[in-house]
Amino acid sequence: MRYEADRKQATRMKMVETAARVLRRDGIAAAGVAGLMAEAGLTNGAFYAHFDSKEALVAEAVVSALAHTRAAMATKIEQAPAGQALEAVIFHYLDPQHVAHPEHGCAIAALGPELARRPESTRLAIDDAIERIVATIADAIPGVSGDPVAAARAVFASMVGTIQLARTAHPARIPAILQAGAVAARTLGQSIGHSVPCSGGASGE
C-alpha cells in the first residue's frame, strides 16, 4: 500500500512539474490536457485520476512554480553579503536567461495576463503564492523605516514588468531594458522602504 501511495504521489508531482514548465513555455490556452500528459509520458486516464479539471492542474502548477521562484530568491538572500540581499534578488531575477527561458522562470512574468482571467479560486491561490514572494523580498530590504511590504510589492511588480518588456523587445535592446529595470527596482526598494509614513491626510493640511 505504501508503494502505491508513493507511486501515486510521484505521478502527481510529475504532472505538476510538467504542467508548470509547459504552461510557462506555451501559455495556458495553448496547453491542452492531452499535450500536457504526453509531455509527462502519461495518459489522459492518469490525469483524471488526480485532477477534476484542467483548471485544478493550472492552479497547482502555477503555485508550485511560484514556490520555486520564492525559494530561489530566499537562497540568494541567504547567500548575499551583508547589505546586498536586495541587489542579489534583483540580479537573480533580471537575468538574461530568465528572459530567454520563461519555462524555468517566474510564472507571473510568463502568464500574468492569462492568470488575471482565471476563475477566482485560481487567482486567490496564486495571490497567496505572490504574497509569499513579496514577504521574501521584504526580508531583503535593509534598514527599513517605511513599509517593507509596500516596497517589496513595488520591487516585484517592477521586475515582472521588466522581464515582460524584455521578452517583447528586439534582442539588441534587452541588456538596456534589464539594466534600466534593475535601477528602477533598486530605487523603488530604497525609496519606499526608507520612507517615513505620513501621519497627516493626503491634502497636506
Rank of each mutant, 00 (worst) to 15 (best):
H50P: 04
K76H: 14
G32W: 02
V33T: 14
A49N: 10
R70D: 03
D52F: 04
A67Q: 09
T43H: 11
V58T: 08
A72L: 06
H68D: 13
A56S: 13
Y48Q: 08
G27F: 11
V63P: 00
A72T: 12
A65N: 03
A40S: 07
N44I: 11
V63A: 12
K76P: 02
K54V: 00
M73I: 15
I77C: 07
E60S: 03
L66V: 06
S64I: 00
N44W: 01
R24Q: 13
F47C: 08
D26F: 12
G35E: 14
E60I: 07
R24K: 15
S53K: 03
A40H: 04
A49R: 15
A40L: 08
A29P: 05
A34S: 15
M73A: 09
E55F: 00
K54T: 01
A38S: 11
V62I: 15
A56Y: 03
A38W: 02
L66G: 00
N44L: 10
L36P: 00
L36W: 00
A46E: 09
G45H: 06
E55L: 11
T43W: 01
A38F: 05
A61Q: 08
H50E: 14
L66R: 04
A59T: 12
T69L: 03
A40N: 04
N44T: 13
G27I: 10
G41H: 04
H68S: 07
A31W: 00
G41A: 09
M37P: 08
V63G: 04
A46V: 14
I77P: 07
A65V: 02
T69P: 04
G32Y: 03
A30W: 00
V63L: 05
H50N: 13
L36Q: 06
K76S: 13
A59H: 05
H50C: 07
L42K: 06
H50F: 08
E60K: 07
F47P: 01
V62H: 08
S53A: 14
M73S: 03
G41S: 09
G45S: 13
H68Y: 03
A67R: 12
F51E: 09
E39H: 14
F47Y: 07
G27M: 09
D52K: 08
A46P: 01
L66Q: 02
M37S: 06
A72S: 13
V58E: 01
L36K: 01
A31C: 15
G35T: 08
T43A: 13
V33F: 01
T75I: 08
L42A: 10
L23S: 05
G27S: 10
L57M: 10
S53D: 10
D26W: 08
V58H: 01
K76W: 05
M73E: 06
F51H: 08
L36I: 15
A38T: 11
R24F: 13
M73G: 00
K54L: 11
A67E: 12
T69M: 06
A65M: 05
S64Q: 11
G35H: 07
I77V: 15
M73F: 15
V63W: 11
G35P: 04
L66T: 02
A40K: 02
A56D: 15
D52A: 14
V33R: 12
A61L: 07
M73W: 10
L42D: 03
E55C: 00
A29D: 12
V58I: 15
H50A: 11
E60N: 04
G45Q: 07
A74Q: 15
G32F: 01
D52N: 07
V63M: 01
